[in-house]
């Protein structure tokens, strides 16, 4: 019984949140990785692209609520997802035309693209804060829980409850669908294969008649769609606050680099690696150990390796270790 309680405790505070956060990071890292694969630079505006998508959802959700439109028990934000994706894609493509296309045409070095992307990042931040302000906005409505902690306890007669939020299960479901769609596109369609070919060997792709402009626009479209989805899911799961998305940039990059920049499968795995390390290292294992250890060995401290304020440090630490040991990523991306 003690062991089951310990497991449920771990499930409630580590595994369920880890899966949800990992999915969100994976979606975000996939977007970064795609842009890296095709345009060959790290897009620092990706965090705020997520924020923009989430912002569109916030605005449309309150509009829908005021019109009395609802898809309960699902959150209204899900209804706005296609519109948020469309809006984000349009914005990102507009930035490509206004900013990046010029640097491509003069064949600037990747570092110039990175600076340009920080410029885009600040324009987006300004835009977002100008429209909705810097404060928290609640994105969630509809039912809160799929599995309620209290009911779970009562049904199984345990001390510990397990709760699974609607947003968490939606995150997992949508991530699975999005990833399957993405991989189907990249591996089964002609255009998707052309994108992979372009990412592999740009010159040969051009010689084969693959149009670079089409590939680039497609990459932005996919990356923006993934960013908007990740942004909304994160906002639903936690809360929508513009600055949070900037702070997600570091874990996102860490996830993409762990998996090997430009490698979609790696980005997916990297998202979960980073999320679980972050949660495990900042989780206080005191109560978990209390269930498992005999009474006289019970820990007195929190048994927390690092306080939650330092969760960025974990992404950073993972990043540094990977860069030191295997800079191309544990899933062997081809960046050098």
């Amino acid at each position: 019984m003690e062991a089951i309680n310990a497991l449920v405790l771990l499930g409630n505070y580590v595994i369920v949140p880890g899966i949800a956060y990992g999915s969100q990071l994976a979606l975000a890292a996939l977007g970064v990785s795609l842009i890296y694969g095709i345009l060959r630079f790290s897009n620092f505006a990706h965090g705020d692209t997520m924020a923009f998508g989430a912002m569109v959802a916030v605005l449309l959700t309150s509009l829908a609520q005021s019109l009395g439109i609802s898809i309960a028990p699902f959150p209204t934000a899900m209804l706005t997802l296609p519109f948020a994706i469309a809006g984000t894609v349009l914005l990102v493509i507009a930035f490509d035309f206004a900013v990046y296309r010029h640097f491509r045409s003069i064949r600037s070095s990747p570092v110039v693209f990175v600076i340009a992307s920080t410029g885009v990042m600040f324009v987006m931040q300004g835009l977002i804060r100008f429209i909705v302000g810097p404060r928290d906005r609640d994105l969630g409505d509809g039912a809160r829980f799929v599995v309620n902690a209290r009911e779970f306890k009562a049904a199984l007669g345990l001390e510990q409850g397990l709760s699974i939020k609607v947003s968490q299960s939606l995150t997992l479901g949508i991530t699975i669908i999005a990833v399957l769609l993405l991989f189907w596109f990249l591996h089964r369609t002609r255009t998707g294969k052309a994108m992979r070919a372009f990412s592999d060997n740009e010159d040969l792709a051009r010689l084969s008649g693959i149009n670079p402009q089409t590939v680039v626009i497609l990459a932005w479209t996919l990356s923006a769609a993934l960013a908007a989805t990740a942004g909304i899911l994160y906002g639903l799961d936690k809360t929508f606050k513009p600055i949070i998305y900037f702070q997600l940039l570091l874990p996102t990059f860490a996830a993409a680099i762990v998996g090997g920049l430009g490698n979609p499968i790696g980005a997916l795995a990297g998202g979960f690696v980073v999320a679980f390390s972050e949660i495990c290292i900042t989780y206080a294992f005191k109560r978990f150990l209390a269930y498992l250890l005999p009474e006289n060995l019970e820990p007195t401290g929190l048994v927390q390796l690092l306080s939650t304020e330092y969760k960025f440090a974990i992404s950073f630490f993972i990043l540094v270790v990977v860069l030191l040991i295997r800079p191309t990523g544990i899933f062997a991306g081809r960046s050098s």
Binding site: V111, V114, Q247, F312
Partner: peptide
């Protein structure tokens, strides 16, 4: 750690270390 790798990594690593420095100073 990063200067023998491609340029993006320095950018990402410096972004990270500055966030960490600030959170250490705050906490």
């Amino acid at each position: 750690i990063t200067l023998n790798l491609r340029s993006d990594y320095l950018a990402i690593a410096t972004l990270g270390i500055s966030e960490i420095i600030i959170s250490i100073l705050k906490n």
